[in-house]
């Protein structure tokens, strides 16, 4: 088992910002582990613009935004990056086990920052009944298919939920020649940013059905249609308000869940409602010396804010290690 001053799990915007801030605050021995073969996390598949408006006063794409951090991290002598490294275990006394091609490593850290991001809520969590054909994808997966692999998932799509990823994907699929037939949102208002409703739906004439829900997905092998119904104030379907939309693709964009399986393994308290750590202060957990930042702490709208709060996590970890002084970020 090796020993490190600070181990950061996750090389997305949160982990990158935390690593840089910790380094600046005087931590000299930082290991950043990332399961993917690149740093940048989910930003790598966000090829649309809208990143960095606050931080860099520039309209950057996800990869461009990430790149500004990655370049600095790569030059920082105190930060060692381990790619294709997958953390499988964390103990309460901060021993991290991770796998990478060719090795299973154990490292004992004096402080840990978990920047493991979030996952998408799935169809199964709503849950939508019906059959289980090919063509039902979490919106983020569809984004990855199109933007990173150049694969077009279908021809005609319906999007469930008006989260930002869903909205962005409505535009993206339209630009790729797919027909987006509707976005279905059970709430009275959209979940996504207004600018995304305007720029991704309205500009392309894509109908948004608020206060509607999907009753059922139909299709034996591939999606054939969805049944949609208007809902009342208790989200129950209103009789005779139903209609069908034929499509071969259904994207699910109904929210994100912080990924805190490692933290849970370590024995920290987790809020069962949000899956975020139970804590009175941003980035802190119930275990001293284990910090959580970015979307793993709580789901943010903007990467700029992830970076900002994650820097404070880096400084808090440094302070815990007896370096510099952290700011007292209180939960807003």
């Amino acid at each position: 088992m090796t020993e490190r001053e600070l181990v950061i799990v996750g090389g997305g915007p949160a982990g990158l910002a935390a690593a840089l801030a910790a380094g600046e605050a005087g931590v000299k021995d930082i290991l950043l582990i990332e399961r993917d073969q690149h740093l940048g996390g989910i930003l790598n598949q966000c090829i649309h613009t809208g990143f960095g408006l606050h931080r860099f006063k520039a309209e950057l794409t996800g990869p461009e935004y990430a790149d500004r951090f990655v370049k600095t991290v790569e030059k920082a002598p105190e930060i060692e990056v381990s790619l294709r490294s997958f953390a499988v275990k964390l103990t309460g006394d901060r021993v991290i086990t991770y796998l990478k091609p060719g090795a299973m490593e154990e490292v004992k850290a004096r402080a840990v920052i978990l920047a493991t991001g979030c996952r998408e809520r799935t169809r199964e969590m709503i849950p939508i009944c019906g059959s289980r054909p090919a063509g039902v994808y979490p919106a983020g997966l569809a984004q990855k298919m199109i933007n990173l692999e150049g694969w077009i998932p279908g021809k005609e799509a319906v999007i469930v939920g008006s989260g930002d990823i869903g909205l962005i994907m409505a535009r993206r699929m339209t630009l790729e020649g797919m027909k987006v037939k509707a976005v279905i949102e059970i709430q009275k208002t959209t979940r996504g940013l207004t600018r995304n409703v305007v720029q991704c739906l309205e500009d392309y004439g894509i109908p948004l059905h608020l206060r509607h829900k999907i009753l059922k997905i139909t299709g034996r092998d591939r999606v054939e249609k969805v049944e949609v119904v208007r809902v009342d104030d208790n989200f129950a379907g209103i009789p005779r308000s139903g209609f069908e939309i034929r499509c071969d693709t259904v994207l699910i964009s109904v929210g994100l869940i912080p990924e805190n399986e490692l933290l849970e393994m370590a024995g920290a308290q987790i809020d069962p409602k949000t899956n975020g750590p139970l804590s009175a202060r941003v980035n802190f957990t119930s275990i001293p010396g284990i910090f959580v930042c970015g979307n793993a702490f709580r789901v943010y709208d903007l990467a700029d804010n992830v970076s900002l709060d994650s820097e404070s996590a880096g400084r808090s970890a440094a302070e815990y290690l007896g370096k510099g002084s952290a700011d007292r970020g209180n939960l807003s």
Binding site: A134, M145, I146, W151, I152, P153, K155
Partner: peptide, 20 residues
């Protein structure tokens, strides 16, 4: 090709096209 990879057999193709 990815367009021939299926979820559970013919008819359940996952990808409908590839950008070239």
């Amino acid at each position: 090709p990815v367009t021939e990879i299926t979820k559970r057999g013919p008819g359940s193709e996952l990808i409908k096209g590839e950008r070239i």
